[in-house]
Nucleic acid binder design. Structure first.
Lengths: 336, 336
DNA sequence: TTGAAAGCGGTACCAT
DNA sequence: ATGGTACCGCTTTCAA
C-alpha cells in the first residue's frame, strides 16, 4: 500500500505535515490540509496498523472476552457481541475475540504484548476469574455485567434491581396481590450474575408492597416448555393474576399458550410483563409489556467508559446502572 | 513491559540472539537458548505486537467476517465462531471480528492497513459480496462455505452433496421408496448457500435410486413447529417411511412428537436421519442417526488453508469438501 | 504554519 | 554460534 512518505511527496509537504493533517493534532492551513487529504484519497492511503501502534502507543483495538459457557443463550450473546462491535467501530475501534479458555489467559497475553488498548468483559459471572486478572493489567478493563467483588472496577449493566422493582410496582399498582416470576434456567442462577439480582429484588419489592411472589425457574439446563407450562398452571391455580417473565423467548410462548388455553385475556384477566429480555417481543402471539435489556445501551456505555479511562487513567471507577425503561402495550390490567 | 533489550542484558547476549532464540529461526547453542528462555520467563517478556508486526510483516491476526443476517441461526453461528477461534489459537493466531456492514467494508480496511494476515469468511451467501472483495485483496482469504462464483478462491465446507447422497442411499438401502426432506426456513434457501445444495443433491439422488422425495421447509423466517408438524403429518399420510431432517433442533422435536403421537417406532416403522446439523442430537427424545456438520472440522481446515497460502502465495486454489460421516444409533430400519 | 529527525521495539541481513 | 545494525512506517518533539 501507499505509505505516508508517498502521500507527502504527492502533496508536496513533509511527512509530519501529513501525519498532523490526518490526525488533526495540530493546526494546518486549510489549503495544505486539502492537498494532503486529496493525495491520501487518491493513493488510497491507509496507515500501517503496526507502525501506528508502535509509534503512537495505541492499537485502536479492544479485546472482547467471552467464556461461552454451556448455558450461554446464543441469541442474546450474539446480540451483545454485535452491539459491542458496533459501539466500538463508532469510536474507531476494532474487536479482538477472546473465547473459551482464552477469555482469561488471553487477557494477560494481549495486554502484555500491547495488542489491545483495553478489554471489554462479557458474560460476567458472580465470582468471575477475570476480576483478578483485570486488576493486574495495566490497561483499562470494563465489565458488562457486575461481579460480586467489583471494588475498583468499571462496570455497566441494566439496573436489574430497579427493573424488578418497577415491574413489581407496576403489577401492584394495577391491583395484583398475588404474582409469579418465571425465571431463567437453574444453572443461570449459579453461573450468571444478574438472574439472582433480579429475583431477590423482585421478592424484596413484592414483600414491601404486601404482595405474594411465587418463583419458578424455566428449566434445568435449557428452557423446558413443559416445565414452564406446569409452573404457569400451578401459579394460576394458586390465584396468581400477574406474571413476570425473565426468560428466553420460548418460555414466553409457553406461558402465553397456557393463558390462551384457559381463555384468560391478557391485560384484563391477567397481567404480564417481560423483564430484562433481549428478543423482539413483537413476534409473540400476544403483545406483552416489556422492560427490555438493551445490548446497545450497555455496550455503548462500556466503550465510552473504556475510552474515558484511556484518556484519564486516574479517574474514579464507575458503576453505571442503566435505568429500566417501561414499554407498555397493554398487557397489564388497569385497576378497577 | 520488559523489552527485548532487557532480556538480552539479563541473559548476557545480544538482541538478535534473543530474537533468534525465541523464534527458532537460526541455530542457537542449547546453553545460550536456556539462558535466554530463562531471562524471558523471569522478566515475563512478551514481544510488542506492533513492533513485531512492523518489522516482521506478520500480525498473527486473522479477520473473521460475519454478516449476521436476520435469519442467522445463533447457536450454529456461535459454534462456528468458537471453532474458528480455537483453530486459530492453536496456530498462534488471534481473531479480529468483522460484523455487520464491517463484514465487507472492514475486509478492505483491515487488509489495507496490514492489521491482519488473512481473512476467514463465515456465513457465505450464494452471491456473496465478499467474493469480489477477496479477489481484490493482497492477503489470503478463505471461505467457510461455497459461493456460486468460487473461481480461484480457497473454500472449505462439508460435502453437502455427498451428505445428501449418503443419507438418501442409506434410506434407499433400507428399503425406503417414499421419503421426505424437512428442510430449513424459506429464507435460508435464498440467502444461504448450502441448503439448496443439499436439497438438489437429495432430490437428484432419490430420483437416481427410483425413490420419491417430498420436500418441505421448516418455516418462513424462523423454524415454525406447527408447520413442521403439518409437513410431517402430510408426509406420513402420503406413505413416507423415511425422513431426512436438515433443520434446527426444534424442528427435530416437532417431527419426533408427531411420530410419537402416531405410535410409530423409530428404526422400525419409520426411519430418520438428521443431515448436516450442528447441535447435540443426544438431547432429543429419541436417538437419531446423524451426518453432522462439524464446525471444528471446517474451521481447522480453513486455518490451515490460510497459513498454507501465506507460506506459498502461488499455490493453486483449494476447494476442500469434508467427507460426510455417518453416525448410526439405530434410527434407520433394517430391510426385511 | 511547516519540516527534520529521533525514536517506538522488534526482525533479519551482513559480518565475524 | 553470535553480534552489530539497518530498516519496518508512523508519531511527536524540537527547531525554524
Amino acid at each position: 500500500m501507499a505509505r505516508i512518505d508517498e502521500v507527502a511527496a504527492a502533496a508536496g509537504v513533509s511527512i509530519s505535515t501529513v501525519s498532523y493533517a490526518l490526525s488533526g493534532k495540530r493546526a494546518i492551513s486549510p489549503d495544505t490540509r486539502r492537498r494532503v487529504l486529496d493525495a491520501a484519497a487518491t493513493l488510497g492511503y491507509q496507515p500501517h496498523a503496526g507502525a501506528r501502534a508502535l509509534a503512537g502507543r495505541r492499537t485502536q483495538i479492544f479485546a472482547l472476552t467471552e467464556p461461552l459457557r454451556a448455558d450461554t443463550h446464543a441469541p442474546t450473546h450474539m446480540a451483545f457481541v454485535l452491539a459491542a462491535s458496533i459501539a466500538a467501530r463508532r469510536r474507531d475501534y476494532d474487536l479482538l475475540l477472546l473465547t473459551d479458555e482464552q477469555a482469561s489467559a488471553g487477557m494477560q497475553r494481549v495486554a502484555a504484548s500491547d495488542l489491545v488498548d483495553a478489554v471489554l468483559v462479557l458474560d460476567v459471572a458472580p465470582d468471575d476469574a477475570r476480576v483478578e486478572i483485570a486488576r493486574s493489567l495495566r490497561i483499562p478493563t470494563v465489565f458488562i455485567g457486575i461481579p460480586d467483588d467489583h471494588e475498583g472496577l468499571d462496570c455497566v449493566d441494566l439496573d436489574f434491581e430497579g427493573a424488578a422493582a418497577l415491574a413489581v410496582d407496576t403489577l401492584a399498582d394495577a391491583g395484583v396481590t398475588t404474582m409469579a416470576l418465571i425465571g431463567q434456567t437453574d444453572v443461570a442462577y449459579e453461573a450468571s450474575n444478574f438472574p439472582p439480582r433480579l429475583r431477590s429484588a423482585a421478592l424484596a419489592r413484592a414483600e414491601a408492597r404486601g404482595s405474594t411472589l411465587r418463583f419458578a425457574t424455566s428449566g434445568v439446563t435449557t428452557t423446558d416448555p413443559s416445565s414452564v407450562r406446569a409452573a404457569t398452571a400451578a401459579a394460576l391455580d394458586a390465584g396468581v393474576t400477574g406474571i413476570l417473565i425473565h426468560a428466553a423467548e420460548d418460555a414466553h410462548d409457553a406461558v402465553l399458550s397456557v393463558l390462551a388455553e384457559r381463555d384468560l385475556e391478557i391485560g384484563r384477566d391477567i397481567s404480564l410483563i417481560s423483564v430484562a429480555t433481549v428478543f423482539d417481543t413483537s413476534r409473540l402471539s400476544s403483545p406483552v409489556d416489556t422492560i427490555p435489556l438493551v445490548p446497545s445501551a450497555s455496550c455503548d456505555v462500556a466503550v465510552e467508559l473504556a475510552i474515558a479511562r484511556l484518556e484519564e487513567p486516574g479517574r474514579a471507577p464507575v458503576m453505571h446502572l442503566i435505568s429500566p425503561d417501561y414499554r407498555s402495550v397493554g398487557s397489564v390490567a388497569r385497576p378497577g
